[in-house]
């Protein structure tokens, strides 16, 4: 467990602030102290690799090289960072001219000794769902969740952490904690977050599809492991029907571990999630200041 350094990624200081908060709170609660990578920089997602393949690799690779110098791999909650770090790692491992060029432009040695890990995989595979459930005090009984993995964790095959069409890691974890993960078909359909600003109308359509499917499957909420997906689904549900809250999976794990809503940033969603959790008696205690102000 000491073999990782924490790579939060840029969103976790901003739009995905609650993801960062809940991740650190959960890790601390589980007794995993993972120091943050010193001097980390942006992985380039999603613009760098859209403009140039090598540019994309180079930005991510810098962080791999920093960690490798300390004999560690990177652990990241962000699906987009994971995808870019893994792409760079894969590029280095393939060797050849690209790997050579990366070392040259970075001016650092880089062998790709340590594979980057996504937080979801780390919690399920290395800590183990069962172990987390053992430490959890609040079963997520009665909560019906639609686990949404998006594109970045399930594709491409070279660095996917789970099946491309029907991934199970998050479903298994939350079921172990007492929630009911509904079977549904849109787990890995792209939500188009990357074009949210430039092609807003199309993206609204994509979001609607996904949210509708989750609703049809009987879910109370969606759960993600990706800041882009969360922000997109949280901000772009069409008005009309009552919206579905979008949680980070770490927030629900945190609830189950008995952590306070403010610690998990549960009061930071655009679509409030706390009313649902209160209704299911998963969260108790007085309504917080921000929660009250934003209601």
């Amino acid at each position: 467990m000491n073999s990782y350094l924490y790579y939060p990624g840029c969103s976790l200081a901003g739009t995905a602030r609650e993801y960062g908060q809940s991740t650190l709170a959960v890790l601390r609660r589980l007794g995993c102290e993972i120091p943050e990578l010193d001097d980390w920089t942006c992985c380039g997602a999603s613009s760098a690799h859209s403009l140039d393949h090598r540019l994309g690799l180079a930005l991510a690779a810098r962080n791999l090289a920093l960690a490798e110098a300390q004999g560690r791999g990177l652990l990241t909650p962000c699906a987009a960072c994971y995808s870019r770090l893994a792409a760079a790692w894969h590029g280095v491992r393939q060797g050849g001219e690209v790997a050579e060029w990366l070392r040259e432009i970075l001016g650092r040695p880089l062998e790709g000794t340590f594979r980057p890990r996504s937080l979801l995989e780390f919690l399920v595979v290395e800590i183990g769902s069962h172990e987390i459930a053992r430490q959890a005090g609040v079963p997520l009984d009665g909560l019906k969740v639609a686990c949404y993995y998006g594109c970045l964790l399930s594709r491409p095959a070279e660095w996917a952490i789970d099946d491309a069409d029907n991934p199970q890691l998050m479903d298994g974890l939350l079921e172990e904690l007492g929630a009911r993960a509904v079977p549904w078909a849109y787990k890995t359909e792209c939500c188009g977050s990357f074009l949210a600003l430039a092609r807003t109308a199309v993206v609204f359509g994509l979001v609607e599809r996904i949210v509708e499917a989750a609703r049809e499957a009987g879910a109370d909420c969606l759960v993600t492991a990706c800041p882009m997906c969360q922000a997109n689904l949280d901000m772009r549900q069409r008005r009309g029907r009552p919206p579905l809250p979008i949680f980070y999976f770490t927030q629900l794990v945190g609830v189950s571990l008995g952590l306070a809503p403010e610690v998990l940033g549960l009061d930071r969603h655009i679509i409030p999630g706390l009313p649902l959790l209160r209704e299911r008696n998963l969260v108790s205690g007085p309504v917080g200041l921000r929660e009250r102000l934003l209601r």
Binding site: A13, R62, R268
Partner: peptide, 18 residues
């Protein structure tokens, strides 16, 4: 209002290499 937009950018030392 939800504290999700930080007003000031961070700037680590590695910025120069980037």
């Amino acid at each position: 209002l939800r504290g999700k937009l930080s007003p000031v950018p961070e700037r680590p030392g590695g910025a120069r290499q980037l």
